Simulated assay, not measured.
Amino acid sequence: MSDLILHHYPTSPFSEKVRLIMGHKQLAWQSVIIPRIMPKPDVLALTGGYRRTPFLQVGADIFCDTALICDVLEHHQPEPTLYPDRLKGMARALAQWADSTLFWAAMGYNLSPKGAAALFADQPLAHAQAFAADRSAMRTGMVTLRPGDATAAYRSYLRRLSSMVEDQPFLLGEMPCVADFAAYHPLWFSRVVNPVMADILDATPAVIEWMDRMAAIGYGEMGKLSATQAIEIAAAIEPAPLPEDIFQNDHGIALGSRVTVAAETFGQEPTEGILLAATRTRYTLERTDERAGKLHVHFPRVGYVLREVRA
């Protein structure tokens, strides 16, 4: 297997989720820092349209969405597992809640007028305006919580997390699982990226202690690459062979069709390519870029929409 290359930026909460999983599994990986906002020409050369952060590159294979990245890293290094026996379903369901409901409540709180003012206090006004416009475009069609509603929900969710870690070190037991990493990153944003907003955590000291245990995991062995180097790596290698069981036909769209895949909600920019696989859990598209060459771009089925491109 080629090197693990994570395309991310330091203050990205979902990137923190994956960085800690790298540490949990004691993996060596390469870091490529990408822009926070558009334009992202080097990103699009690899993904073909997908612009959410982070994404994982393994040679000429591009894996989008942290739910899929977790599965890829689990396959690459099964121990310690993200999906403990007898708790796999619960761990995945709790992680999905944390990556969506908890995350958006936390962001509604963190980016309230007070939070946004603190986050951009040392930056030119134009930077804050550009960030706000970029994220507004990504939220097209979404219903988002107002700051007051987000704050109330966030407080409630923190109490629920607290009840889970008052008598055990991690959410589902003695070892962290995928749910811990998913629940941690929105809280990390409050505590580390925008500490002016961290006082909301004070009412749940058990959560703070759990966060300390999570932070102690670290990031594993991190190297550094430029975006140009990552694109050159993709161009120099063929995508990995696909497994034999590659088609679960839930859409009536044949393999070999030209299709798009896009997120259901946040960041709906589509990636277009040839449908190579539609397995039980993921889609794989083949696309070609003039800089990166032939690529396989992979998406999870849950949370994404497959559409056929008709002439």
Rank of each mutant, 00 (worst) to 15 (best):
10 P>E: 03
19 R>H: 02
21 I>M: 10
29 W>D: 05
31 S>Q: 03
34 I>A: 08
35 P>N: 15
36 R>K: 07
37 I>P: 00
41 P>W: 07
42 D>L: 06
48 G>F: 01
52 R>H: 06
56 L>D: 05
58 V>D: 14
60 A>Q: 03
61 D>K: 01
68 L>P: 00
71 D>S: 12
76 H>Q: 12
89 G>M: 06
98 A>I: 03
101 T>L: 06
102 L>K: 08
105 A>L: 12
115 G>Y: 10
117 A>T: 13
119 L>P: 00
124 P>L: 04
127 H>P: 01
134 D>F: 09
136 S>N: 14
141 G>A: 11
143 V>D: 11
145 L>I: 07
149 D>S: 15
157 Y>I: 05
167 D>Y: 04
168 Q>K: 11
169 P>H: 06
170 F>I: 02
174 E>N: 13
179 A>P: 01
182 A>E: 03
186 P>R: 11
187 L>W: 04
192 V>S: 10
193 V>H: 03
213 R>E: 01
221 E>G: 00
222 M>Q: 10
227 A>F: 05
232 E>S: 15
236 A>Y: 10
248 Q>M: 13
251 H>Q: 14
259 V>N: 11
278 A>P: 12
282 R>F: 13
287 R>D: 03
292 A>D: 00
296 H>V: 09
300 P>H: 07
302 V>S: 14
307 R>E: 15
309 V>L: 14
310 R>D: 13
310 R>N: 14
